[in-house]
Amino acid sequence: MINVKDLVKIYEGQVTVHALKGVSFKIEQGEFVTIMGPSGSGKSTLLHQLALLDKPTSGQILLDDIDVSKLSEHEKTAYRLKNLGYVFQEYALIPELNAIENTYLPLMLLGARRKEYTRASTELLEKVGLGNRVHHLISQLSGGEQQRVAIARALVNKSKTLFADEPCANLDTENKGIVLRLLRQLCNELGQTILMVTHELEQREFSDRVIWLRDGIIEKEEIISKEVRDSALREEYQVI
């Protein structure tokens, strides 16, 4: 569960930017929430604070009742490794590693045995439809396939929450469909909490709820009905 209380982020510089001006909301375990809003509304900033990639100016973030704002840098690193998964806009894989190596890296860092992390990674890659691409180098994979490897890597540590920052931004329509359906499927089947930032309106239909941001504050919240979701899964990006 994610509980955000009065989150403020101010970027100091030649021009002071108030990116988040006191944001509060809750996300339940297993919920798929989309954050939307125009450019500069604070979507990515909010995601970075929740994913412990940046430090908020004030406010409180509770992840499963742990006040992560109080953790040291070392503790945050360990928390990210054990509990969080992250899918970046630009695939963000290590080019010298192949698909399975990129996937099992977090498990290796957690000290898992080789047999264990190889099995878990193979299963996840099969789940994201890359069972036949396990030993392919990143340069040998398409953009969509790379993003699916990134999703597998974000899930391999059995993360409680998956953060996705514009995961479809660089993908064609076919691959957008594959990635979004995969995220929905993970939420439905594994009970994965997903927080996704996107600026493409139709993508919100895959989630349970939408938090609309404008100028650093929550403008409104929108619940996506089951009918809309099912319709999106059927109609949007119908490629697989």
Partner: peptide
């Protein structure tokens, strides 16, 4: 990215 996924410095 390596730091983001939890790799120690």
């Amino acid at each position: 990215i390596m730091k983001a996924i939890g790799m120690k410095e």
